[in-house]
């Protein structure tokens, strides 16, 4: 009977490990939050600041809703920053210079973003270019277009701020977030659209031989990403109020940080979960927001941020999935 006990114990050990894996990403977030509550003496929880938090995490969370599909199948897109900038420009141009109604402007932004992301998708699928390279090329194209267009427009275009104050309302943003996150979660975790991405990320040949069009689903992922980036771009535009050649830049890096902080596996696959991206985004936002509120002397900010990031990452990122049992050791 001793055998069975040992077996049971090993099974319990495995169960505990599974539980731990599910909790760890939250651990990082909780740790960071508690830390900043202490250090800012509670100011971080003030209603005003909560509004700020919603504003700050809005873009990254929205983009995450789409990014999760692409990264889950092992793809990536480094162009979304400058694509967002270009989308913002088209949108603001349509509204301010052409006088078109706002919904059309939003459509314009979404269209441009979806087009750009689709190009990345097409290039990597049809031309067999690694999405890394494909997206860098698209990044150059969109950034270049943005630069030329903004220059022609005189450097930047400014919004008639008062008209758009409503889009900065925390309630509106909160609702949009809830809807998009809810939709994203549903599509990713409960429909085949998301499940197939995870399967492709695990082994695309298996999926191919199971009779599923890997090409089609990869494209869909990029289009979903484009859609989310387009919407995010619109709100970025209303928040900042101007569009210049540097608008939107850095989004792809923020996404990567959110991905790592949340414990999302870099090559996708079945271990990928929607909530990892969202968690990562929230953690990142609190980190940035907290650092500012803390009022730490500027020279120390980068240092502390770097240190915090390293430790946070090692807590939440699970490498055991990558481990392979190998009996060769030369």
């Amino acid at each position: 009977m001793e055998e069975r006990d040992i077996q049971k114990e090993l099974e319990n050990k495995a169960k505990r490990k599974e539980l731990l894996m599910n909790i760890l990403p939250f651990a990082g977030l909780i740790l960071i939050t508690v830390f900043f509550i202490i250090v800012t003496k509670g100011r971080i929880l003030r209603v005003d600041n909560l509004a700020n938090l919603v504003n700050s995490m809005f873009t990254i969370t929205l983009a995450s809703c789409g990014a999760v599909f692409v990264y889950a199948h092992g793809g990536l897109d480094f162009s979304i920053g400058s694509t967002s900038g270009l989308a913002q420009f088209i949108c603001i141009f349509m509204i301010m210079k052409l006088g078109l109604p706002v919904p059309l402007g939003i459509l314009g932004a979404v269209f441009i973003a979806m087009a750009a992301c689709s190009i990345v998708g097409l290039a990597s699928i049809k031309l067999h270019i690694h999405p890394f390279v494909a997206s860098l090329c698209v990044k150059n194209i969109t950034a270049g277009l943005l630069s030329v267009l903004t220059q022609k427009a005189g450097g930047q275009i400014t919004l008639d701020y008062s008209r758009f104050k409503i889009f900065n309302s925390v309630w509106l943003k909160g609702m949009v977030l809830v809807v998009m996150v809810g939709l994203g979660f549903y599509l990713f975790e409960r429909t085949k659209l998301g499940k197939i991405q995870k399967a492709i990320g695990g082994n695309s040949r298996t999926v191919e031989q199971a009779g599923i069009s890997v090409r089609k689903y990869k494209m869909l992922a990029y289009m979903v990403l484009g859609f989310c980036v387009g919407i995010a771009a619109f709100f970025q535009m209303t928040r900042i109020g101007t569009v210049s050649s540097s608008s939107g830049s850095g989004l792809e890096f923020d996404i990567m940080i959110a991905m790592v902080l949340g414990g999302f596996p870099m090559s996708g696959g079945s271990a990928a979960k929607f909530r990892q991206f969202v968690l990562g985004g929230i953690t990142m936002t609190i980190l940035t927001n907290g650092l500012t509120m803390w009022g730490l002397d500027v020279s120390y900010v980068s240092l502390v941020k770097g240190l915090l990031l390293i430790v946070l990452v090692s807590v939440s990122y699970d490498r055991s999935i990558m481990k392979q049992v190998s009996i060769i050791s030369l």
Binding site: S246, S247, G248, L251
Partner: peptide
């Protein structure tokens, strides 16, 4: 310090007004 990223700059400025 706002850095060169407009989105981050806006976030930092918003947070600043908490003081």
């Amino acid at each position: 310090e706002t850095g060169y990223n407009t989105e981050e700059a806006q976030a930092k400025t918003d947070a600043m007004f908490q003081m």
